[in-house]
Amino acid sequence: MKTDVQNTNKGEVQDQQRPPESTQPRIYPAYEVWESAEAIHLRLEMPGLDRSDVEISVENNELTITGSRPDWNVNGTVLLRERRVGDYYRVFTLDKTVDMDAITATMKNGTLDLVLGLAKEAKPRRIEIKTK
């Protein structure tokens, strides 16, 4: 299913899903998105992944986050298996208000935090009204 990309409110990050070509089952990591005065904050939960396992790329206004979760290789009898194995994958469509060069990412405790800086023109700007 494709979500229409449209310019909505300021800074809104649109979520767009497109299956990647992969043989591994894919996992859409759960995320949280919020906006502060100067940036959009994205937090994705990707337990089991180290900083080096995650790849983030921006292309044509699309922010793609991928990460392969290593299988839990233990020789033994599996008694319970609830955790997902597969490739994390999620794509976000960014609108023009995000400054593509001001994206920072940190990974801690299995959560990926992305801070997407807002472009200058997207920040609130007061317009003076001239009197004649």
């Binding site: 033994g76 009898t77 599996v78 008694l79 319970l80 609830e82 955790r83 997902r84």
Partner: peptide, 13 residues
């Protein structure tokens, strides 16, 4: 939260 449990010869993980 999701759990995995594996039994090996000398431990439960």
């Amino acid at each position: 939260p999701r759990l995995d449990v594996v039994e090996t010869d000398d431990a439960i993980l």
